[in-house]
Design a protein around this nucleic acid. Structure first.
Lengths: 196, 196
DNA sequence: GCGGCTCTATGACAGTCGTTATAAAACACG
DNA sequence: CGTGTTTTATAACGACTGTCATAGAGCCGC
């Protein structure tokens, strides 16, 4: 049986492209015109698919990235928290290296740009939700391996925050050394937490 | 004896204002016109003081923030790594809370925005330098308290990355809970590393 | 007072931005 | 074929951007 992967629709291409551009240049510097061009879609289509404009596009880009990372995280966590951590780190390492240190995490990018005062920060709320989803997956796996609930929640927050911060540091330094440092420390931390 | 604090020059006000605006809206969304207005300085003055334009202004804003945090970090580290960590965390907690979750770290903001392809990323290099300065201070203090050099360097990277990431998460969630989680975990981690 | 320097004021340049309106095209389905 | 819906094309709107040029103020040592 053969299943041909459906070629992505124009709408999907726009969202994926927006996520990529946001992860490189930030939300404000990502223009709708360029995302459309990057996805080989006309400008008019963007406002057809995303009638609420840029906020909606950013929101969907954040959610897409969140779901993508969550799926990988969920799968690998079945082999335990250490395997999950490694998968999470490798995922971002790939992004950083494949882009020659030009891309990072669009969820972080959206989180640190103050939204215009007049509108509800939909994309920011989506970013908060993605962080919580990632933390929840990690904390759940830690609890399953005997870590106390409060300790598990704290550790999950630390992992997500450290990975996000490390990716940014790798971009600034144009080096993956921060990821190596963080990986070693977080792995040891998890191993120690599980053993208790 | 009485020493009047010298009122900051227009140049200093511009740099400080730029750092604040970058920490809120990101580098690309911070316009030179608005920084000038925010500092009650005319637009012409900005190009007088910063003839290399926006890159130079961003670079100085990053360095100002870096030096400001480094000074606090250096002072408090004299009381040991745990005190230094607490000071570092409190510093950012103050920024986040005083701004009602609208401001963060300008160094991080600069780190995650791809510079225009045609110019040398001066501000990005400055951000890398600031991260290294912070890591160096923390690693040095850890070594002084008996932590192995490699372990100290890794732990310092983790601390800086985690704090930066946590501040961003606090903004997204509009809560300081991530900072509480990270603070607890990092403190325990340092205590454990020192005791060995 | 007076030259010379630092700083300000003002306006302009060419470009991009988010968004909207409106018309044409492409398509699906009977 | 026609018809109704989805998608594209194109132009325009006001506003904003980084940068530069130039003319004027303010202030220094002499």
């Amino acid at each position: 049986m053969h299943v041909t992967k459906p070629s992505p629709t124009a709408r999907e291409r726009i969202v994926a492209g927006a996520a990529d551009m946001i992860s490189r240049r930030g939300l404000n510097a990502t223009s709708i015109r360029e995302t459309a061009k990057h996805a080989r879609a006309p400008l008019g289509s963007t406002y057809h698919y995303f009638p609420e404009g840029k906020q909606q596009l950013a929101t969907e880009a954040v959610r897409l990235t969140g779901a993508w990372a969550a799926r990988s995280l969920r799968e690998e966590l079945e082999a335990g928290p250490v395997a999950g951590l490694r998968a999470f780190l490798d995922l971002w390492r790939g992004i950083v290296m494949d882009s020659d240190f030009r891309a990072g995490c669009p969820v972080l990018a959206v989180s640190i740009e103050e939204p215009p005062a007049d509108e509800t920060p939909l994309a920011l709320a989506a970013a908060a939700g993605v962080f919580e989803e990632w933390e929840g997956l990690l904390a759940g796996s830690l609890r399953e391996h005997g870590v106390e609930p409060e300790q598990a929640a704290q550790l999950a927050t630390l992992i997500v925050a450290a990975v996000e911060g490390t990716v940014a540091m790798c971009r600034a330094k144009r080096s993956t050394q921060p990821l190596d440092h963080t990986a070693a420390q977080l792995q040891a931390l998890i191993v120690g937490a599980i053993r208790d």
